[in-house]
Write a protein that binds this DNA or RNA. Sequence first.
RNA 1: GGAGGCGUGGCUGAGCGGUCGAAAGCAGCAACCUGCUAAGUUGUUGUCCGGGAAACUGGACCGAAGGUUCGAAUCCUUCCGCCUCCGCCA
Length: 429
Amino acid sequence: MLDITFIRENPDIVRAALKNKNREGVVDLDRVLALSEERKTLAGEISDINKKRNEAQAARDAEAGKSLKESLKTAEEKYQALEKELVGMLIKIPNIPSADTPVGPDESGNKVVREWGDKPNFDFTPKAHWDLGRELGIIDSEKAVEVSGARFTYLKGDLALMQFAILQMVIKILTSREELQKIIDKAGLKVDAKPFVVVVPPVMMRSQVMNRMARLDPIDERYYFEKDDMVFIGSAEHTLGPLHMDETIPESELPLRYVGYTVAFRREAGSYGKDTKGILRQHQFDKIEMEVFSKPEDGLAEQELLVAVQEHLLQELKLPYQVVLVCTGDMGFPDQRQIDIETWMPGQEKYRETHSADYVGGFQARRLSTKVKRAAGESEPVHMNDATAIAMGRTLIAIMENYQQADGSIRIPDVLQPYLGKDKIEKQR
RNA sequence: GGAGGCGUGGCUGAGCGGUCGAAAGCAGCAACCUGCUAAGUUGUUGUCCGGGAAACUGGACCGAAGGUUCGAAUCCUUCCGCCUCCGCCA
């Protein structure tokens, strides 16, 4: 949610943001501004009534007390109705894109800012991961369909082990001040190398808190348990973000950096028939996610750090990728700036999205009520960043397709070999 | 799942219908004092919203939302959370 004061002072910027997201018809900004004025006036009236009421009570004036009680009730009911309508509209207003975000209608407007790595040259026709997976016996989709339905798979044997190897590699880097310092130096950044705290967060949460995270809509994308009013998370970000809700953090303690490992659930409503083969688009996949709480002025630099971490991980795995600055029409609702990384998938001859880094500013913190206490004494919403460290399924795909050999086996990336104790994946059952 | 208990300021904890934004202690801050690794004395210290240049001032806040009452931290209802015992369980 945006700050109402900001909206009042910058209606044109907000109007532009609505236009970019095709939400002009969804939110009547003039109504929002009128409501906020009305709310202010009414709050003053309520305060006055309360003053008189306190006086009546002190005088034990029953008659005046009764009548004031009535006026208070009327005023408060009006205030609540107004507040409800106002907030209902406020939460439909997307965040304001950063100055360097390209303007565009959809993903066609995204901008590739850099590429890394050489795409592999094969002297044979490279296979897609679903064929490799089936032939090697490390992905079983047929049985998963019978047991769980479409968009579920069994990862087996060395492929499952590779997932754990990646997890260990990533955790080792993110918890090491020295490793982070190397990444920071390499990227030419000026941030502290404070290590990430490892978290295993809940995968279910109250729908109400998900709403405060501005991630409940569209509800069709969530697995929702009506009986308990709970939703499955679509990312560790959803339960890492509220880790400090209703808290005020002294600025000396920031930044707070977390890395969470969870399964993520996506209903994939509306993507029927898209990417149905293999493990690219699953209802369930494991993911390592980073979440950072920072001072507002450090938010963009923290995003740069998260992107640098993502790039470092892909470079360690020697996977070719491109970094994409996501445009206004394609970026997430709470995002101020979104940077995606797409990794080369030779079996499909395409770059596919494997990482996303979302800088949301104070957009989520405002409703979560996570604040920073400045040294001078005042407090304001903290700024938040969330970013993929590794989306397991898609990273496994990239490794399988980039490291495939003429004989149908898959070479294991050098950095992962120590964790797996071998150098290639061969046919197994 | 059954039975009982409890949610008060940064912490501990009193208050059980008006004199309560709330005792006391601890912690914090300031001044004074003191020669031994810091103690003592005194004063002071909650958050949020509005008005004011400021001093200051009006309002709200005792888990949350409703209700009773002229008046609620105190009584009632619902919800959320925590604790103890029993049952069950990884």
